[in-house]
Amino acid sequence: MDRSQLLKGLLDIIVLRVLETEDGYGYQILRRLRAAGFDELGDASVYGTLRRLYRAGYLSTYVQPSESGPHRKYYALTEAGRKYLHQMREAWEDVSAKMRALFDIAENGTAEKGRA
């Protein structure tokens, strides 16, 4: 499976998590993600996700002038966005734990067969 396709299912939680600690503007958010190792994520994916989360009420925006360029639209988490992130995180941890357990079982089973 294409890694970028896997990440698309996690875009909401990724973007919300990046904004949880600090507000940011579109391109800045992309750079944070790249710095976190999400090189596969394109600008359009991040921008589209930001706008979708904004329309859903999970993000709010405000404009700040920039000394080095045009005015920038900053995104910030709303209370609904924090709750949504919390839910998504729980879901992710649940799935992640199950996946890990699933792989552990498979690997142990293979190892036991090998020993046998």
Partner: peptide, 19 residues
């Protein structure tokens, strides 16, 4: 950013929200 067509395709995939 790549071609406008690719950008639009990527945007389309992430912008729609099942409201």
């Amino acid at each position: 950013l790549g071609s406008p067509e690719a950008y639009a395709r990527e945007l389309r995939e992430t912008a729609e929200f099942p409201r």
